[in-house]
């Protein structure tokens, strides 16, 4: 898993499969970075991700809660059709934004 901090923005490069097994580590590492760098914007990069279940939704909701208190926001980028379907189905798109490539 890779994490990148630029000013007050944290990008989390998600693994191939985002389930309960690796959700714990992402939660721990990203929360440490969010506190240390006063992060206001969290970007979940789905570029390498082909599987996600509701544990992944839990991770997104949790990070949203953290940065939302400071008026921050959460984005999903490079999500394939399957990942978009899961994000939309879960209703999490009401609180996060999906960045669409076409709009570049």
């Amino acid at each position: 898993m890779k994490y990148e901090v630029q000013e007050n923005c944290l990008t989390i490069f998600l693994p191939n499969e985002l389930d309960h097994h690796n959700a714990e580590e992402i939660r721990r590492k990203s929360d440490r970075l969010i506190e240390k760098h006063h992060i206001k914007c969290v970007i979940f990069d789905f570029g390498e991700t082909n599987f996600m279940d509701s544990s992944g939704i839990g991770v997104i909701m949790g990070r949203y809660r953290m940065v939302n208190l400071l008026g921050g926001e959460v984005w999903a980028v490079h999500a394939n059709e399957r990942m978009k379907k899961i994000l939309v189905m879960s209703g999490v798109t009401k609180i996060i934004q999906i960045y669409e490539e076409e709009h570049v």
């Binding site: 939660r27 279940d53 509701s54 544990s55 939704i57 839990g58 909701m61 879960s90």
Partner: peptide, 14 residues
């Protein structure tokens, strides 16, 4: 407290 989304069964049903 474990940040479960509460959607496990909903996903199974869907």
């Amino acid at each position: 407290e474990l940040e479960r989304s509460g959607m496990g069964f909903s996903f199974m049903e869907a």
